[in-house]
């Protein structure tokens, strides 16, 4: 019969129509502004800079190595290195970014900057409602606007933040152990040098009493 299959098809649409009232499988949408879905663990929108502690300026992890600037596919990151240095989380003196701008309107949310960053300092935020009426600086974000505390990172990507903290703690422990070992070696070497110098001075004094023995060199304070 002509039209039989069309009627069968109508039965399918009817099934879907009435099914959408009872089955979640047939109605997957939510009414967006009122109802919002939780962002997924790996969701990536736009980058932010992580800082430790309370002071965004002091605790900023970024050391202005400019790897993200080079790797960024749409070239939306702009960094100016500082001339002076400040201590990083390990206590080492590092340069820091004087300017760190990201043009959010150019950024394509690919998260390559996050992957290539060796210092766990740039991460992806989940904020996406960023519309603004400022045509010029509204979407050109500077260091102040990009810097967000580590607690924010924990809020948006709980598991990643834990992993990242673990990496940093391990590196810090490694650096401290290395520094400690270096300091111990230094102290030891200095002590040996002192003993040697004293012995030499004594020998010299014994050989020729006339010239006064030179005092041992002042030791720099060990870290």
């Amino acid at each position: 019969m002509l039209g039989e299959q069309i009627i069968k098809g109508m039965a399918v649409t009817a099934k879907n129509f009435f099914g959408s009232y009872v089955s979640k499988e047939r109605l997957t949408t939510v009414e967006y502004p009122e109802v919002r879905l939780e962002p997924k663990e790996n969701t990536r929108q736009f980058p932010f800079l992580v800082f430790d502690g309370d002071d965004a300026e002091k605790g900023l992890r970024c050391v202005a190595c400019q790897i993200c600037e080079k790797e960024c596919p749409p070239q939306c990151i702009y960094i100016v290195k500082s001339k002076d240095k400040k201590p990083d989380y390990k206590g080492q003196m590092q340069v820091y970014p004087v300017t760190f701008d990201i043009d959010i309107s150019v950024c394509m949310s690919c998260s390559i900057c996050v992957e290539v960053c060796p210092f766990e300092s740039i991460k992806m935020d989940t904020e996406f409602e960023l519309s603004t009426d400022d045509r010029f600086d509204g979407l050109l974000w500077g260091k102040k606007k990009l810097a967000k505390p580590n607690s924010h990172y924990h809020k948006v990507h709980a598991q990643d933040a834990k992993d990242s903290d673990a990496v940093l703690a391990a590196e810090k422990a490694k650096a401290e152990a290395k520094a400690k070992a270096a300091a111990e070696a230094k102290v030891k070497a200095e002590a040996e040098a002192k003993v040697k110098a004293e012995a030499e001075a004594k020998a010299k004094a014994a050989v020729a009493a006339a010239p006064a023995p030179t005092p041992p060199p002042a030791t720099p304070p060990a870290n």
Binding site: R26, T28, K40, N42, C110, M124
Partner: peptide
Amino acid sequence: FREREKILDLFEEISGARMMCN
């Protein structure tokens, strides 16, 4: 599109984006 959404949800969970998976 309803069925496609379900697959895109799976993609989003793993890669972080629905269409631009990278």
